[in-house]
Structures are given as C-alpha cells and as structure tokens.
C-alpha cells in the first residue's frame, strides 16, 4: 500500500518549560486542594455514620479537621512560594504570564478563545508556557486562593495559639463580625476550586488529544514539544525577556 504522505509533518523541538520548583508547587498544590475540598466538604456536611462505638474510641471528625488544617498550611506556604518564584523563575514562571499588562495579552486571549474554546475549525494555538487565557484564569485562581486563605485562617484563628492565624482576624470584621457569613463564603468558594479542577483537567487532555505535544507529561518532567517555527519565535522571546529582566535588575 502506498504510504500516505502527510502534508506538513511536524518537526518538533524539545523545550524545558516547567522548572522543578514549579512542578513541585503544582503537585503539592493539587494534593492540598484535593485534601482541602474533601475534608472541607465533610466539615460542612458530615457523613451520617451509625456506629456503636463510644466517642472515647473515635476521633474521626477530629482527624478530618486536622487534615484540613495541615493541608491549609501547606497550601498557604506553597502559594507564597509560587509568588516568590514568579519573580525569580524562568520566563514561563514569570508573574507577567498571569497579569494582563499589554495589548498583546488581550489579543492572545482572544485567539485562544476562538481557537480552543469556540473551536475554530482545524486551527491550533501554539503556546509554549501558559497561554494568555490560561494565565488570566490562573490569576483568578490566585484570588480564590487568597479568599480561601484569609477566610479560612480567620475562622481558624480562634482555635490557634499561634500568632500567625491571628493575622487574619480582620477578615471577620470585613464580614461584619459575622462568623456565619465568613464560613458560608469559605464554603461557597470551595466550589470554584471544584469547577476549576474539572475544566483544568479536561483542557489538559484536550490539548494533548488535539496537538500531541506532551501537555500532560510536561508537568511531570518539565518538557514540552513544539514546532520548529514556533520554537525559534519562542527563543527570540526568551532572549528579549532575559534582556528586559536584566535591565530591570540593574535599575
């Protein structure tokens, strides 16, 4: 059988995108969020357990809450670390990926929207790190992270002897000293994480399925594969980014 020659075979180049700290951050974050959502859901809606055991033999809810609090601390400091890494990490980790600072950012958002979300026919969007839309959505997740940390530690402050949680007490004032409201918002924001995780995992699969460039494995090994042409463009970008960054550092 005659072999079907492909119109434009992809020549792929390997790019090291996600540095180790970014990958560690990602997985710690994912684990913490899963633990927080599950335990948090149970704290809001405890399961009905009919058990003959005496209270003295059990500490189930105590453990659920303990896991929640430990995961919360991991989540918080991990998040702080990621913010720091946004200033010292490579181009793909830079904070500028998340906050729209120029017109190009919005143009790319529009491109991604039309190609990947509204599915422009047989088009693919080439991005190496985060695409602009993803970056902006991550920015929203950071805001949700903040809301969760602030409301969560404000609720926790009364159970903690450490001054750290007390730093968040003012949040209860924001809600008119109303712990009910604080708690309600903390619980409601959990759903943002659930919806986000669904869409996030789906889109990772989508990219791998449509583009075959190692989207999924990149967060394990750090490598992505991109077309020759896009690769050269990206190299130029990186060079420019480095110059700018040095300039900033000198100033």
């Amino acid at each position: 059988m005659a072999s079907i020659t492909h119109s434009s075979p992809h020549k792929l180049r390997r790019v090291f995108v996600w540095q180790l700290p970014v990958r560690v951050y990602h997985w710690l974050n994912a684990l913490a969020i899963v633990a927080l959502c599950i335990t948090g859901y149970f704290i809001g809606n405890p399961p009905a357990l009919l058990s003959g055991a005496e209270a003295s033999d059990r500490y189930l809810f105590g453990w659920i809450r303990f896991v929640h609090f430990v995961a919360a601390y991991i989540f918080f400091f991990n998040f702080l670390f990621r913010i720091y890494w946004g200033f010292v990490g490579n181009k793909y980790a830079d904070w500028k990926n998340f906050i729209p600072t120029n017109k190009k950012f919005f143009q790319e958002i529009w491109q991604v929207l039309s190609i990947d979300i509204f599915l422009k026919k047989n088009k693919e969007h080439m991005s190496v790190g985060h695409n602009a839309l993803a970056g902006l959505v991550y920015f929203f997740t950071f805001i949700a992270f903040m809301v969760q940390c602030i409301t969560g530690f404000a609720l926790y402050a009364n159970m903690s002897d450490w001054w750290f949680a007390d730093l968040f007490i003012w949040a209860s004032w924001l809600f008119g000293h109303d712990d009910f409201a604080l708690r309600n918002w903390h619980h409601a924001t959990m759903w943002f994480f659930i919806v986000f995780a669904m869409v996030h995992v789906y889109l990772v699969f989508y990219h791998d399925y449509v583009e075959g460039r190692g989207e999924t494995s990149s967060i394990v090994g750090g490598w992505k594969f991109i077309d020759e042409e896009a690769f050269h463009k990206d190299q130029q970008d990186t060079a420019e980014w480095e110059v700018k960054k040095k300039g900033r550092a000198i100033r």
Binding site: L49, A53, A55, R58, Y59, L60, F61
Partner: peptide, 9 residues
C-alpha cells in the same frame, strides 16, 4: 464536643 470530634451526630 467529644461527640463532634468523634463524628457522632
């Protein structure tokens, strides 16, 4: 409270 911590509601 011990019942709460034990998850008995």
């Amino acid at each position: 409270r011990p019942f709460y911590d034990a998850g008995l509601f």
